[in-house]
Design a protein around this nucleic acid. Structure first.
Lengths: 340, 340
DNA sequence: GTGAAAGCGCTAACAT
DNA sequence: ATGTTAGCGCTTTCAC
């Protein structure tokens, strides 16, 4: 004998009363509640989420699907989701697709989630038609954070607008020769995001009458290493641009490292700007268009929690804020274009 | 009607046979299995982990407790745990203590885990007596990854030995004036780790007849920002040491940034070495004593999984490998001590 | 304010 | 090879 029954016996009450007392439901005498609590503590009672889940159909857990764990954006968003869930006593089940597309199919199969959760947060994922179908079949309330996904509500910044903000800042400072470091994240990140940021850059440049040259658009793979490599390639060609816009802070950090190694000063020789708001950026004074993935995670979790609580589902798109944070990595071009 | 029963009706079989067929148990005719599978697919059957869990007492999930998510070591370890769990079809429930000590107590209360999991991985945590007690009461098989914890088995590198390795490398190169950047992680990291690394450094120096001065031991808070700040403080005093040993790669990366900003060359002016094996370190050529937290995570998960499968519990301590990776951030002191 | 009883969807003996 | 039965620990009517 264990569980709620044990307390029932010990107190001489019935299972129902114990259950009610434990959950703080109305209609239980105060002294009864106290007695139940005391005994529960005494016998070391631990509720069974499985039993409760079976009985109610609610698991009090929500799932988070990530392409890989190992990225600033995912980690931060996860943190936000977690914080919000904790407030409501929900658990967080983490489903990582682990990069490779091999495991991926399995993860998306509807039966993989096994009704262990009540709702789903999808982080910056892009899925194909069959994956979407599987997801629909699960019938979980869900929301994606990070990039637009066809047919699913999402939360995220205006990526194109963020890129415009960054580019305009550079243009306003007087830069004309600016390179763009973008590319695709190799690990399942939403493909739309890189494109939107790139287009934001290109369109803004064009609107100023500047057509970005092919060799000013580099692939930095959305990683520190990629940004470093892209900058080194940039440094091998003359002229070196007076400014660099990296589509993510991590790439910008890599670029700054390459710049420092080449003894070029930021921003005197080359200005650097990016998008994200990575903590490391603040340390080196990186100017950036900062977003708050943690808050996006909280928003997503809150929306789902509210919906589970019976509230109206949120609308198809919840914009997240992104704002220009000017620090010391950007300044007016201090040298004539083409000095080196 | 739903679940297994629905398939039973549709096929004219009994629940047990369906259950057996679905789980691939022996003693079911091949055509029966096929029929069950087909119908299951047809009706979009999704197993209920709650029901299975209730019936078997196994949740097929394991919990991972982290102080905060937001750290290289935790993320990497989490990745390893996840990879191993996925192989066995186990789910991963993430419990983050969220830094602050306010929420912390709740997370550690035994009832917080609600029998949702079968075992527990504790990441680099240090807990007080009452927390340990709560954990013991849960009776979950558990293992900690990252630092020694009194009374709980653990997996981790020999921190003192790793520090010795790093220090010896510097000494062998001819360095005599070396600074140490360590400190405590503010967010619940195992306190023993910083101490062990520091002691490893100090003891190795002493063994070479060098007593590290008080002002050569800095606090870098185990963060990028902290390492950056510590290096800047170091640069304000003369002489600047010929080498710096940071207790973590993240701090070393911060230090290197500060060095680059001050136009000092690595390793010509100052050598830098650290411990961890962070990917960013490889990009800038950071010499380090690399560990593999992802593998530690896999090892932990495997041990738990095996134990759940009936195998003998692993021993009290499973050492993890750490090896010196010499890259370009260390070299012989190229200037006389005290030039600046 | 409290109790009795039915069931949530599955598994695991124990039959047949 | 398949069916029957009895729970797993909780919640939830419905009675009292």
């Amino acid at each position: 004998m264990s569980g709620i029954q044990e307390i029932a016996c010990a107190t001489g009450l019935s299972k129902s009363t114990v259950s009610r007392a434990l959950r703080g439901l109305p209609g239980v005498a105060a002294p009864t509640i106290a007695a139940v609590r005391r005994v529960a503590e005494e016998v070391g009672y631990v509720p069974s989420s499985a039993a409760a889940g079976l009985a109610t159909g609610r698991q009090r857990a929500i799932g988070v699907v990530v392409p890989v764990i190992d990225r600033w954006f995912y980690v931060k968003t996860l943190e936000g989701v977690d914080a919000e869930l904790r407030r409501d006593g929900y658990d967080l089940v983490l489903y990582s697709l682990g990069g490779g597309s091999s495991d991926r199919e399995r993860a998306f199969h509807r039966s993989m989630l096994r009704r262990r959760i009540d709702a789903l947060v999808l982080l910056s994922l892009v899925f194909d038609e069959s994956e979407r179908e599987q997801l629909e079949l699960t019938e979980y309330p869900m929301v994606v954070v990070g990039g637009p996904a066809p047919g699913v509500r999402h939360i995220g910044i205006d990526d194109r607008g963020a890129a415009r903000l960054a580019t305009t800042h550079l243009l306003d400072l007087g830069h004309r020769d600016v390179a763009y470091i973008g590319g695709q994240d190799e690990a399942g990140m939403n493909v739309a995001v890189p494109y939107l940021r790139r287009d934001g850059f290109r369109d803004t440049m064009r609107a100023s009458g500047i057509e970005p040259a092919e060799d000013r658009m580099l692939d930095g793979g959305f990683s520190y290493r990629g940004g470093y490599g892209a900058m080194r390639r940039l440094l091998q060609r003359r002229p070196v641009p007076t400014a660099v816009f990296a589509a993510s802070d991590e790439m910008a950090l890599g670029a700054i490292t390459a710049l420092a190694e080449a003894s070029l000063r930021v921003p005197e020789d080359v200005s650097v700007i990016a998008i994200d708001g990575h903590e490391h950026g603040a340390v080196v004074g990186l100017t950036t268009v900062a977003q708050d993935p943690s808050e996006q995670g909280r928003t997503a979790a809150r929306a789902l929690l509210d919906e589970l609580g019976g509230a109206q589902p949120m609308s198809a798109f919840a914009p997240a804020a992104a704002r220009l944070v000017v620090r010391s990595s950007t300044g007016p071009p201090a040298r004539l274009p083409g000095v080196f």
